[in-house]
Write a protein that binds this DNA or RNA. Structure first.
Lengths: 96, 96
DNA sequence: TTTAGACTTGTCAATATTTGTCGAACTTAA
DNA sequence: TTAAGTTCGACAAATATTGACAAGTCTAAA
């Protein structure tokens, strides 16, 4: 739950309440709570909005958010590590 | 489309038709065709069944199948490589 | 050429999953 | 205790995925 931890940290550093951040994302507090704890997934637009709110590079958050989804996908799969390694190679390959 | 290519290759090596393999998976030919071309995703059970049909290690296929899903998830995301790298680190970390 | 077989395409309904909301239940600090 | 912040559980609505079908293309043999 890298992404959730990070945005919770950013929120606390900014001394904002879930209620306040949730309002700016136009979703309710319980949902933001779930996102912070990784129980629910943020949407791409929310990630962008969060970067604005906390004034951080959107790329940083997107990266964590993506990484979380990858982890969610491969977790409790025996071949997780191999799969990631293959995906990584393939990605570099196809970039040409 | 690593997984699809692989099962197509296995199928051709085994000199089987889509129709025949599809029958053993209990799904129709067009769907298998799509799976081979990566237009549709195979289910976990199908991967297991395919390993049996072609007499290969299930892990090999699962790995490719997972890698495909990871690629699908991160493709056309700018931070794809970073995200994979972070996910990979995190995975190794959490394994303890 | 036609025909037959293998494969592909597009579309649809059924199902499953995800999303956001609500009321209520915690938790913590005064 | 209260009050504010957060979390929980259940639900309906919105989305996505699944598998099937009919119709299409392509190739090779007749």
């Amino acid at each position: 739950m890298i992404f959730g931890n990070r945005i919770k940290e950013l929120r606390e550093d900014a001394k904002l309440l879930q209620r306040q951040v949730a309002a700016r994302l136009e979703l309710d507090t319980p949902l933001l709570s779930k996102i912070e704890r990784g129980e629910r997934r943020a949407r791409h637009e929310h990630v962008a909005a969060l970067a604005k709110i906390f004034n951080v590079d959107e790329k940083e958050l997107i990266t964590l958010w993506l990484a979380d989804q990858v982890l969610e996908l491969v977790k409790d799969q025996v071949e997780a590590e191999n799969a990631l390694s293959i995906a990584s190679k393939e990605l570099k390959n196809s970039k040409k």
